[in-house]
């Protein structure tokens, strides 16, 4: 079913919206959740939470791109779930590995900012910087830090060697750091 029709079902409060979303995007969403949580059960729970969030968000939202709208929900829900879990014990998920990588470029883990609008602003700056990059470099960075894809999956998807992917990520992280510094962020 077309994304626009699925969104219409949400707006019509038709429960088929959930089943159609499940048919079309469950695999995509489960992949994101698994990359963050590294647990099948937790991931399925995160995906189910995504459907609930989507049901509650539409209306009033009418997303232009349903896949990324749902993916962002799954990502946020999964990260929140992981943070709750890591308060008890530390795991080895791709999310945590990604945080470690960022710390290598001087972006240390720390307390979260509470104001969501600040994240939105930062997201805009990040997008601004990413648009200056070649498409391959940009996609590798998003694949790693939005979807939390493992390096071997990135290598397979983009046809690059692992060393090349690591090199790309390192250069983009440094570039992003400089870009955000220029925008006034303290890193």
């Amino acid at each position: 079913m077309e994304d626009a029709l699925i969104v219409d079902l949400y707006w019509d409060r038709d429960e088929r919206a959930i089943s159609e979303t499940q048919i079309k995007y469950e695999r995509y969403l489960t992949k994101i959740a698994m990359n963050v949580l590294s647990d099948r059960e937790d991931s399925l729970e995160a995906v189910n939470d995504t459907y609930l969030h989507a049901w509650n968000s539409m209306p009033p939202h009418r997303p232009e791109i349903l896949s990324t709208f749902l993916g962002k929900i799954t990502r946020r829900v999964s990260i929140d779930s992981l943070r709750k879990k890591t308060a008890v014990k530390r795991g080895g998920s791709e999310y945590e590995v990604s945080l470690q990588e960022l710390s290598e470029n001087g972006i240390e883990p720390g307390t979260m900012q509470e104001n969501e609008s600040e994240y939105q602003d930062m997201g805009r700056y990040i997008s601004e910087y990413l648009r200056t990059l070649p498409e391959d470099m940009r996609n590798v960075f998003i694949s790693r830090y939005f979807h939390f894809d493992p390096l071997k999956d990135i290598c397979k998807n983009f046809g690059f060697s692992e060393s090349k992917v690591k090199s790309i990520l390192f250069r983009v992280r440094n570039g992003l750091k400089d870009h955000l510094k220029k925008a006034g962020y303290e890193l």
């Binding site: 997303p63 232009e64 791109i65 990324t68 709208f69 962002k72 990502r75 946020r76 990260i79 999310y95 990604s98 945080l99 960022l102 710390s103 972006i107 240390e108 883990p109 720390g110 307390t111 979260m112 900012q113 994240y119 939105q120 930062m122 997201g123 805009r124 990040i126 997008s127 990413l130 998003i142 830090y145 939005f146 955000l180 962020y185 303290e186 890193l187």
Partner: peptide
């Protein structure tokens, strides 16, 4: 800003 902030901000990049 820290790494976690950056990760959360990544959730707001353009669709």
């Amino acid at each position: 800003m820290n790494a976690k902030d950056l990760m959360d901000a990544m959730n707001y990049i353009d669709d």
